[in-house]
């Protein structure tokens, strides 16, 4: 049963990665690793900033 659960978690984690659900986590990792001393953006601020930046920086989607 644990293996099934782990497998499901793994799949959900993978799908989340593909969707970009872990973007904030990665931002925090980067923030920490790059030795910034100022506090990182909060989760709300981060996502706001991310989508607002896409307004002027569109990504193509293929046919």
């Amino acid at each position: 049963m644990n293996a099934v659960l782990a497998g499901f978690r793994g799949f959900a984690g993978y799908l989340g990665g593909v969707l970009g659900a872990d973007a904030y986590k990665k931002y925090l990792e980067h923030h920490e690793a790059s030795g910034h001393t100022d506090p990182p953006l909060t989760e709300r601020e981060f996502w706001r900033e991310k989508t607002d930046r896409q307004d002027t920086n569109p990504q193509g989607r293929c046919c």
Partner: peptide
């Protein structure tokens, strides 16, 4: 920069790239 330029696990990026090219 933690935003546009982010190292991404190859398997995740494979799915991400595939989702972007296939429609």
């Amino acid at each position: 920069d933690g935003k546009d330029y982010v190292r991404t696990d190859r398997n995740v990026l494979f799915g991400h790239h595939f989702a972007a090219i296939a429609g």
